[in-house]
Nucleic acid binder design. Structure first.
Lengths: 341, 341
DNA sequence: AGGAACCTCCAAAGCGCTTTGAACGTCGAG
DNA sequence: CTCGACGTTCAAAGCGCTTTGGAGGTTCCT
């Protein structure tokens, strides 16, 4: 059943019926009720395609996701998506997933922006120089960002306090007596990686420790990379007594390296990992249970979707800039530094 | 630039331009080339919304995903999605994600089917009695299934050989001398869970072993559940010498249980897990490296998307029914059964 | 030469909705 | 009693594309 038929059924014009349905004021309460009741009764549902064509709005939000193997984002992404879905579903917005490789990301974005298949784009994992943000800004296409944009002015975004998290975690380790600390961080072009790096550095500075006691490594955060990196560090002369991990996956690799070398966690080696709350891999299910800096990626997804919808509704870009606190949760993978050999 | 303008520019009618662009035969090669060149030059892109309205086809495929916490599907889902995205992107199809909880799944499906926002739906994790399949069949809405449908007749699907995988894995353990084996399986309303169960049972029967030596448990496949279940089994009188795991996540929980109880893997306990190839959690990154039955969920995603597109193109439902072989990969988590105490 | 049988191309009618501009009472003010 | 204002409703014009039913122009056979 379409609008025309419904209108005919009611002996009203399409105009009136459409207005009644969409809550416009130019229609009397009485007719509105009649129309609503009839729509309900006939199970009328407006055609999204027609509405889209007529209004130019897609009623959908776009999420671009990296279709290449990206072990870091992968398990996080679903949880994040679940958050996005949660709120967008409430508003009846569809979610359009656009696969893209880093190489043709820009093409994907401009296609999305021009095609009108989505009303707003959600950007994730901003980089220090991010062509995507530049592009969308220039096209004046609505978007919001999950993560700290390199130039936050005029950009709506939400981020977790990566700086604070790693400052806190590092300070905690220092207080436990750890001096040689290895930080296995992500790739250094991401803003969150830089923030974490700064957090750790500031903690060292605050403790009056020389900067070079912090042994920092940048790499894609896979278990495999982490394993390799951890082995190398743990077999070196100046063996670290603690390792800071950028994610639970990294911790997995580190744990394996420690086990292989016969090191006991936390006696010989302390581990702190950042935990985005992947339900599939809860930090407390590891052995030993992991001390973490915790934040909910799902909640972030939900919030960023809210922002996206607000943006569609006309909210100014840059209206929202939230940084969520991160909690340090001490579990069994950390202990006082071993006596110096 | 829209079709009308492009046509005007070329001094041709919209009809001809449209046909040239869409490869219809009623247009001479010469004009087609001219049109194509001009479209290219002006960067013309047809409006998806208009095309959708005119043709009634959305050029999109729908994937319903469980927005509730579902630790099993979560990390798999992205990898699966990546596969779907891979092939659908090639054909210019959009992917629409519809969140849904198990409770309102049916509503979600009928909405998708009626709205015309997608041309075909991909169904995952079919159950022994699956109302979704019934619904879509009745509505005559195109769909394809990932996993074995309860009633495969007239349904296009692709599945991995869950039966064979677990039969093989179980036989392998039996050959290693294991007699008391625990199988930590998924929830028993899924068809793949039943298949795996049958596989293990058949292996026992083939070896002439009594059925009750197989200690089988059904549960959502989370690390936590697995941990609880494994502890209980390992602390019991008739302690198993081997555990079959439905997923890598399950293995994680089992490993933890073993570590807590001071059991060495594989000396005291052998572990075989099914591995869907989550790049985030490679089986060889565990300690010890896991013996697995391996299949690529990403490849399956790619294939099921292909099927979906073929279905849109008019292929009959039921035209495809593939069951992919699963490979047993022996690594370090399995060994000969310990001497009987 | 006349007509059938193409080959190309076109005008116009949708697809189902929103939205503009106007018409039609009805009512209170002058 | 007339006029302007207001509250309701409507007809019709898009939105940008596809597609039906022809209309011209060629070619080919008889």
């Amino acid at each position: 059943m379409n609008l025309k038929e419904l209108a005919a059924e009611l002996h009203l014009s399409q105009t009136t019926v459409s207005r009644a349905l969409n809550g416009y004021p130019e229609v009397s309460e009485k007719t509105r009720e009649i129309v609503l009741a009839a729509a309900q009764r006939f199970g009328y549902r407006p055609s999204p395609a027609a509405r889209r064509l007529a209004t130019g709005r897609a009623h959908a939000l776009g999420v671009v996701f990296n279709a290449e193997r990206n072990a870091l984002m992968d398990p996080l992404f679903v949880e994040y998506l679940a958050g996005v879905a949660e709120t967008s579903a409430k508003q009846g917005f569809d979610i359009l997933i656009s696969p893209s490789t880093p190489r043709d990301e820009i093409t994907t974005f401009s296609r999305l922006a021009r095609d009108g298949t989505v009303d707003v784009i959600i950007l994730t994992a901003p980089q220090l120089t991010d062509p995507r943000i530049a592009l969308l800004s220039e096209l004046k296409f609505p978007f919001v960002v999950h993560g700290r944009p390199p130039a936050p002015a005029g950009v709506s975004y939400i981020d977790i306090d990566n700086f604070g998290a790693f400052q806190q975690a590092t300070s905690f380790l220092i207080q436990l007596g750890h001096r040689r600390i290895t930080l296995i961080n992500g790739e250094d072009h991401f803003t969150f990686v830089e923030d974490r790096s700064r957090g750790a550095a500031v903690a060292f500075a605050a403790a009056g420790l020389p900067k070079d006691m912090l042994d920092e490594h940048f790499m894609p955060m896979t278990a495999e990379n982490a394993h390799r990196c951890a082995r190398q560090a743990l077999e070196s002369e100046a063996r670290p007594t603690a390792i800071l991990c950028g994610s639970i996956l990294v911790a997995l690799g580190v744990l394996r390296a420690a086990a292989e070398l016969g090191l006991d966690v936390p006696r010989d080696l302390s581990i702190v990992a950042h935990d985005d709350e992947m339900p599939a891999f809860p930090a407390e299910q590891f052995h030993p249970q992991l001390t973490t800096t915790r934040s909910s990626i799902r909640a972030a997804g939900a919030r960023v979707a809210e922002m996206a919808l607000a943006r569609v509704a006309g909210q100014k870009p840059g209206a929202i800039a939230e940084v969520w606190p991160v909690q340090l949760i001490v579990r069994g993978s950390t202990a006082a530094a071993p006596e110096r050999a």
